[in-house]
Design a protein around this nucleic acid. Sequence first.
DNA 1: AGCCAGGAGATTT
DNA 2: AAATCTCATGGC
Length: 303
Amino acid sequence: MMQPSTTKITIQTPNTFRFAPNLDYLNRDAKECMHHIENNQITKLIELTGQTLLIQISEATHNTLSIQCLASQTPITELTRIELINYIHNWFDINRDISEFYALARTDALLCQTTQDHYGLRIISIPDLFEALCWGIIGQQIDLSFAYTLKRQFVEKYGTSTVYNNIQYWTFPTAEKIATLNITELTAIQLTKRKSEYIIEIAQQIQSGALSKQHLQNLPTIAHIEKELTKIRGIGPWTANYVIMRCLKLPNAFPIDDIGLINAIQHAQQLDQKPTKTEIQQLAKNWSGWEAYATFYLWRTLY
DNA sequence: AGCCAGGAGATTT
DNA sequence: AAATCTCATGGC
């Protein structure tokens, strides 16, 4: 019997990167359907250069990640190999020098502890713009648990999957597919009428080329990107900044209205009431340029 | 049962 | 034009 062909790739990580806290982050919710974690290995189905790849990521040595392609029918091309390395670097934000963030966190009352507790954590990105936007919209106004349920229903109805060793792996539904749906098809999986409208409209804009990651990335400042995104129905300041943080990866994105951020600050400072926006802006002065990282690390205090 | 959550759209200032 | 209401919806 033929062995499935595999390709193994090794990636070096900097000293300010650790595999464990990133693994913990990805493992934070059992209902997550976009990857699978078992035995300290992350397995995920991704699309790259037209190929569907099932990749498995583990820590080889202290500063080395090992990436394996499972179950590929044919050996991956050199181009795909390069794209895969890029994908991993981008996904885990490996190339970013976060020493400046750690330096400011050392003297920051809110960040000091969590940056120690989760030392080596990076903002894990959502590379696909459509996925990031959908996840933002799905997550509006509801608790995380229900948001994961909705995402799973959406993915399992409209995504594609591959089964490997009796585990089913999913890719996120494409804009192309969702652009053709009726609202009733999405309200059927418990999305609200409004959210269904937003998601279909966004899928259509992505499919037509009116909205793309490339276009947003070419805009000169975060303010321009935010303005462009909030023109779109369903995207307000919170969603725009969430997407700028998770997909476009600007470290100064700041979803300041985020209830998780508000709760994390309230809890850390033992406040009787939730901090106001002005109070959060005051605290965030010390995070200048690193608001997204500060937010991401503060979210980790909630678990 | 009533509160909560981002955003749109309307209304008021 | 900016601040303030109201609406829709499901989970807890």
